[in-house]
């Protein structure tokens, strides 16, 4: 397969970026999208040019490192996968592919396709945890948790923190990310004592980071490689209302 790539290149956060065009030759259908970029990069290095910087690590869809907007789709055109799980058989010979970084003020570009997502860590720091001291836990079976609640908590907890929801959102909002953590911990009895304080603080941090707000488009859940549902956003909203109208 031969493909034409239009790739966003940007030296650093302050520099002005732009699209550059590359030819990707000898691409096999079994290659992953990132392996295709590896091939292009090897070629660039041999020519003495700087390779395209992109983040990746586990390459099996769980670490959340990789992320790029491919032809207007965060993580590419296929549903429920991250960029590393996209394979070249999805494309046809001669295709033109546009590759860009996540775009949001809260995710400044570090270089090319690499963005700084530490804003997501700071949202977790604001309250995305249960305060339990090591060693102070009761027996694991001391509190039975209905399977339904445990499953719902798990569905929210599968978030890999890749930031595709922000990239897809027309408002660059991080609501799905924040809601997933609020809903995960809120679904469990252990998460109750800090439930309302948590949602207040996490939302405040999300706003402070410069993310946009939620207009309920649902683009985030379509882009999410773990198919996290916007139901969790409704849950966050509900908790937020209660947080303001209850005494706790």
């Amino acid at each position: 397969m031969k493909l034409t790539l239009h790739v966003w290149r940007q030296q650093n956060a302050g520099a002005k970026g732009g699209f550059e065009t590359y030819e990707a030759r000898d691409i096999g259908p079994d290659m992953s999208f990132l392996e295709m970029l590896d091939v292009v990069n090897e070629g660039l290095i041999k020519e003495g040019k700087e390779p395209i910087a992109f983040e990746h690590d586990c390459r099996e869809g769980i670490c959340g490192s990789c992320g790029m907007v491919i032809n207007g789709n965060p993580h590419g055109p296929k549903k429920a996968i991250s960029s590393c799980q996209l394979h070249m058989r999805t494309f046809a010979d001669g295709d033109k592919i546009w590759i860009e970084p996540w775009r949001a003020k809260a995710f400044p570009v570090r270089k090319d396709l690499v963005v700084d997502r530490s804003a997501l860590d700071r949202i977790i720091q604001a309250g995305g945890f249960i305060s339990v001291r090591t060693g102070s836990a009761p027996d694991a079976n001391a509190i039975p948790i209905p399977k339904e609640n445990a499953d719902s908590a798990f569905d929210a907890a599968t978030c890999i923190g890749c930031g595709a929801c922000v990239a897809a959102c027309p408002n660059a909002s991080a609501m799905l990310f924040t809601a997933a953590k609020v809903a995960h911990l809120g679904a469990l009895p252990q998460g109750q004592p800090e439930r309302y304080e948590r949602v207040r603080n996490m939302v405040a941090q999300m706003d402070a980071e410069g993310f946009g707000y939620c207009t309920n488009h649902g683009a985030c859940q379509t882009a999410c490689p773990k198919e996290i549902s916007i139901d969790f956003i409704a849950q966050l909203n509900r908790d937020m209302m209660r947080a303001f109208f209850t005494s706790r």
Binding site: H6, W8, F19, V69, N71, G72, N73, P74, W98, E100, R103, A104, K105, A106, A167, A168, P170, N171, A172, S173, G210, F211, G212, Y213, T215, H217, G218, A219, Q221, T222, A223
Partner: peptide
């Protein structure tokens, strides 16, 4: 929302 995405995409993102 405008502030949150100062640079727009080269290829428009329209999901859902």
């Amino acid at each position: 929302a405008r502030d949150a995405r100062p640079t727009s995409y080269g290829r428009p993102v329209h999901l859902e």
